[in-house]
C-alpha cells in the first residue's frame, strides 16, 4: 500500500493554489502596467489631466493689455500678475470671466519681497518699514494700503 497519498494531496492543493494565484494575478494587474517600466503608464495621463490654474502673464495680457504693457515697461516686469492677484483659474476660463480678480492692497504683499532681510541679496530694493514711512503723516502710515499712496504697483516708481 502506498503511504504517501496524503502528501500527494498536499502537493495537489499547493499546485492548484499556486496556479490560482498566478492566474488571478493576471487579471488584477492594471492595463498599462509595465509598458514603460515598473509602473502603470496611464498614471501619466492622470497627471496630465489635472487642471492648470496659473495661466501666466501672456494669458492675462489677452484681456488686460493696458496693465500688461504698464507692467512690462517698469520694474515689476518680471513679477507675475498672478503672484500678486490670484491664479487665473479662480477668475476666468479661456472663454469667459467667472469671478472678480482679487486686488490685494495690503502692504504685507509688498513686504514679502521688499522687507529688509539679512538673507536677501543686496541687489534687491529693500526697506525697513518704520524708516521708510517715517516721513509720512502717522495716520497715513498706519493704513494697510499706505504703499499705494506713492507707488503704482504695476509700475512702481514714484507716482
Amino acid at each position: 500500500m502506498d503511504h504517501t497519498k496524503h502528501l500527494w494531496r498536499v502537493v495537489l492543493i499547493l499546485v492548484l493554489a499556486g496556479a490560482g494565484a498566478i492566474i488571478g494575478r493576471h487579471f488584477l494587474i492594471p492595463k498599462s502596467f509595465g509598458e514603460q517600466g515598473f509602473y502603470r503608464y496611464d498614471s501619466l495621463g492622470d497627471y496630465m489631466t489635472q487642471p492648470v490654474r496659473h495661466g501666466g502673464d501672456a494669458a492675462c495680457a489677452a484681456c488686460h493689455k493696458d496693465r500688461a504693457d504698464a507692467k512690462a515697461g517698469g520694474k515689476h516686469a518680471t513679477v507675475s500678475c498672478e503672484s500678486c492677484h490670484a491664479p487665473m483659474a479662480s477668475h476666468a476660463t479661456t472663454e469667459a470671466k467667472t469671478a472678480d480678480m482679487p486686488k490685494n492692497r495690503d502692504m504685507t504683499l509688498c513686504l514679502w519681497c521688499h522687507q529688509k532681510l539679512r538673507a536677501r541679496p543686496e541687489t534687491m530694493p529693500q526697506i525697513e518699514i518704520s524708516e521708510h514711512l517715517a516721513a509720512l503723516d502717522p495716520e497715513d502710515a498706519k493704513k494697510a494700503d499706505v504703499c499705494f499712496n506713492c507707488h503704482d504697483v504695476h509700475n512702481p516708481s514714484m507716482k
Binding site: M48, H54, V79
Partner: peptide, 23 residues
C-alpha cells in the same frame, strides 16, 4: 512635487518657475 506635470506636458513651465519674480 510633480514639476507640474500637467503644465509641462502642455509646453508650460512649472508654476513655481512661472511665478518666481527673480528668475
Amino acid at each position: 512635487c510633480t514639476w507640474c506635470y500637467h503644465r509641462i506636458t502642455k509646453g508650460m513651465r512649472p508654476a513655481c518657475v512661472e511665478m518666481c519674480p527673480r528668475g
